[in-house]
């Protein structure tokens, strides 16, 4: 078991290394340069800047240097967006903002999505089920900018008398978090509800449910003890990476609600070719993802005793 975990961690490190390499060369393959902008500075200035940040050296030298720094935990400094500011500090400042919103978004998505999915499965084919199906299908097909923009319009002054929430994001003011959390969690909520409904239906059709009914258990126990635990695995599989993505911030929602989060910043860094910031945030997300997947594997075992890391029992 311990050996298995070590092996997994090794694989995870390799994955992150591969991501670092790929991202490094991909960002450089894209035409453009952090210092080229509308103003087109003189060549002398460009040369000086390139030299300052080491961008004048051959690519493989830059790559080796980058990896060397990375091993020492140094993500470098921003070359454009916040000149000379360490990338690690940027992430450290922006991640908490995104993570707070992402956390509450996923929290309500799970707390509502799972029970709704169970309810729909239990009342399959009837009114409740159909209504939930409609909402959830809508939820997974509506682009998030539509949801976010509609909410912003409706509750931030677009409709007279409905201005319930501030238009501009204010860190620390709870009212600033409500709409972003709702918009960010809406898609996962609908997705989780659909997923739980499907896996719940599957579980409810199993023989052990018939056994549970034949034992004289009440409906609640059958649903939430016997069926749900088996139905949770697919939901966990979805949630693992989703936690990483959501906590790192949704670009659309952060843009619509002007939230100074990591998601929005990441996209800005790409368009301004701020190489160290792109690399740093990508690596951060990749490590987070890999970590979540490892965690999900461990949770799998807690939920289903048939699953053991490294070997799957029949």
């Amino acid at each position: 078991m311990a050996r298995e975990i070590l092996k997994r961690i090794g694989t995870a490190a390799l994955t992150v290394f591969a991501v670092a390499t790929l991202t490094f060369f991909l960002t450089r393959a894209v035409p453009g340069n952090p210092f080229l902008s509308e103003k087109n500075p003189p060549q002398a200035v460009l040369d000086a800047l390139n030299e300052k940040y080491g961008l004048d050296q051959p690519l493989y030298v830059q790559y080796v240097k980058y990896l060397g720094n990375l091993l020492r935990g140094d993500l470098g400094v921003s070359v454009k967006l916040q000149k000379d500011y360490p990338v690690a500090r940027i992430i450290g400042e922006m991640f908490p903002v995104s993570a707070a919103i992402g956390f509450f978004a996923l929290l309500w998505a799970v707390l509502l999505g799972v029970p709704l999915g169970c309810l729909a499965a239990y009342r399959r084919g009837r009114g409740t089920d159909s209504a939930l199906q409609v909402v959830c299908t809508l939820g997974v097909s509506l682009p998030s900018f539509v949801v976010a923009s509609l909410l912003l319009f409706a509750f931030c002054g677009g409709i007279a008398g409905w201005k319930l929430f501030p238009t501009l994001f204010q860190a620390g003011d709870w009212r600033s978090y409500v709409l972003p959390c709702f918009s960010l969690g809406f898609y996962p909520m609908c997705y989780i509800a659909r997923q739980s409904r499907a896996s719940m239906l599957d579980a409810l059709g199993q023989d052990y449910i018939k056994t549970a009914r034949a034992k004289g258990l009440r409906t609640g126990r059958i649903l939430f003890k016997h069926a749900l635990r088996n139905a949770l695995l697919p939901v966990l599989t979805y949630l693992g990476p989703q936690v990483a993505f959501t906590l790192c911030g949704g670009f659309v929602v952060e843009t619509v609600f002007t939230i100074p989060g990591l998601g929005r910043y990441f996209v800005q860094s790409i368009s301004s070719r701020d190489y160290p910031v792109i690399l740093g945030t990508t690596l951060f997300l990749a490590s987070f993802l890999v970590g979540m997947n490892l965690l999900v594997d461990l949770l799998y075992q807690a939920v289903d005793p048939r699953i053991r890391l490294g070997r799957e029992a029949a």
């Binding site: 023989d207 052990y208 056994t211 004289g216 635990r229 088996n230 289903d304």
Partner: peptide, 19 residues
């Protein structure tokens, strides 16, 4: 069910909850 009358099924491989 399970009190005064009990029932057992054909397939013992799937009739117990695996978790």
């Amino acid at each position: 069910r399970g009190g005064r009358a009990a029932m057992i099924f054909q397939n013992p491989m799937t009739s117990l909850n695996p978790v």
